[in-house]
Deep mutational scan, measured.
Amino acid sequence: MPVRRGHVAPQNTFLDTIIRKFEGQSRKFIIANARVENCAVIYCNDGFCELCGYSRAEVMQRPCTCDFLHGPRTQRRAAAQIAQALLGAEERKVEIAFYRKDGSCFLCLVDVVPVKNEDGAVIMFILNFEVVMEKDMVGSPAHDTNHRGPPTSWLAPGRAKTFRLKLPALLALTARESSVRSGGAGGAGAPGAVVVDVDLTPAAPSSESLALDEVTAMDNHVAGLGPAEERRALVGPGSPPRSAPGQLPSPRAHSLNPDASGSSCSLARTRSRESCASVRRASSADDIEAMRAGVLPPPPRHASTGAMHPLRSGLLNSTSDSDLVRYRTISKIPQITLNFVDLKGDPFLASPTSDREIIAPKIKERTHNVTEKVTQVLSLGADVLPEYKLQAPRIHRWTILHYSPFKAVWDWLILLLVIYTAVFTPYSAAFLLKETEEGPPATECGYACQPLAVVDLIVDIMFIVDILINFRTTYVNANEEVVSHPGRIAVHYFKGWFLIDMVAAIPFDLLI
């Protein structure tokens, strides 16, 4: 008679799926529990143990900040960024110097990925580790590398530091407007667009060049630039800015003055950032001319202004700041037409079709709590990747769950009947059967004279019903998954307890 339990259901295979997918890609990662103190490590794979030199037993239950890997060259700011990422709910990448158990130093890129439950609360953290440099290539500990984003994938490793954006290309926007319009339909740009040429040739750093990471940081200074100062900065030398009595002219307006920039070969870094931020506020060169004239017309309804409409929906549905990093990277690809469009465009503009998908598509409701890094690593669709929660398995109709209350009560009843059979069957065979043979035949009273025979008949009927119930009862397979398919249940029961239950259900007393 089957006594099969499996009270692990309803099970959740999400954690096993993450481990299996990460292991298949030869990654070095740990999984931490966000619900406990210090976000203790609950799993670390073999790749991480080989990377740091510690065994799994030495890593388990330690804080996922990996303070046991810190050393003299470990930056405090990087460690603080990892700790801050564990307090938030967004994906974050941090470069930090770690030390192995043998004392060797290596520069590592740590990717902190939160995993949320159905309520939107962070319950786990996945920390992925990628070695960037070994100890002989690690720089000085005073050099802070965590304020910069990861290198873009479309640049060669040897040319990542030679990417320079020439400031004269930004200063000569109005001069290039006529050349853009003359391109017409034969050019790649839309009317009114501004073409910015980027020099990728390796050259020595000069005062006129600005690194790509500095251009990325310009967006942080746009908020500090007032509207009046932006307007004066875009007017140009024809209309000098008016300053109040006793007030000095704005240095932001002076930063885009061609006369002032041409007199000296070098520009201050602050002026460069502010000038680029001011130019980015204009949607095209037409807006710059309109600002000089004193009238700013409404933005025209053409394809170039609607190019950012799908980007707005993608940004609203993005799951991490990696989408913004990807957008900034692609927006700086050289030799393309940049349409400086305000994100607050007309909502009635139709979304044009684009061959290049900048932001990841909208994630469906079932995966809105899973970050983009987890979705990318697992390579699963929205119909396959579940949320991290207890999910009731989908069972067929008329199927009994093996952990249901009805099955528990039924098993206790069958257990009592088995005990009765084990006690009274030998007793009936030894004593009652002998008395029946010696006594007179009682054929007239039937079952009324033999109450134990009636009980034995009921017990046999219950055993037959138990066999039928076992054909529709779920079970737990070797992978700790609840199986509810009727065919698989029948095959599993035939290979197991079916023969024993059938022999126990045969009414031998009635056959004798």
Rank of each mutant, 00 (worst) to 15 (best):
H7V: 07
P10R: 11
S26L: 07
R27P: 03
I30L: 11
I31M: 08
I31C: 04
V36Y: 15
N38L: 05
A40L: 13
N45A: 06
N45P: 01
C52N: 01
G53H: 01
R62H: 14
L69I: 01
P72K: 06
T74H: 01
Q75H: 07
R77V: 15
A80G: 10
Q84F: 08
Y99E: 01
R100Y: 01
V110P: 01
E118K: 04
D119I: 06
M124C: 05
V131A: 15
V131R: 07
M133H: 14
K135D: 08
M137P: 07
A142T: 13
G149N: 07
W154R: 05
R159S: 08
A160L: 13
K161W: 10
K161F: 04
T162E: 08
L165T: 14
A172I: 01
A175C: 09
E177L: 06
S179C: 07
G183Y: 11
A185W: 03
A185G: 14
A193R: 03
V195W: 01
T201F: 05
S207T: 12
L212Y: 06
D213K: 14
A217R: 13
A217I: 10
M218I: 07
V222G: 08
L225M: 12
P227R: 05
E230M: 07
S239T: 12
S243M: 15
A244C: 08
P245S: 15
Q247W: 14
Q247F: 15
A253I: 08
S264F: 06
S266A: 05
R269C: 14
R271E: 15
R271K: 09
S272K: 12
S275T: 06
R280I: 10
S284A: 12
A285I: 11
D286W: 04
A290R: 04
P297A: 07
P300V: 15
A303Y: 13
L311H: 07
L311M: 14
S313M: 14
L316Y: 07
N317C: 07
S318N: 12
T319P: 14
S322T: 15
L324A: 14
S331G: 08
P334H: 04
V341Q: 05
P347N: 03
L349E: 11
T353P: 15
R356Q: 07
V370I: 12
K373V: 12
K373R: 10
V377E: 03
V377K: 03
L378I: 10
S379F: 05
L380F: 07
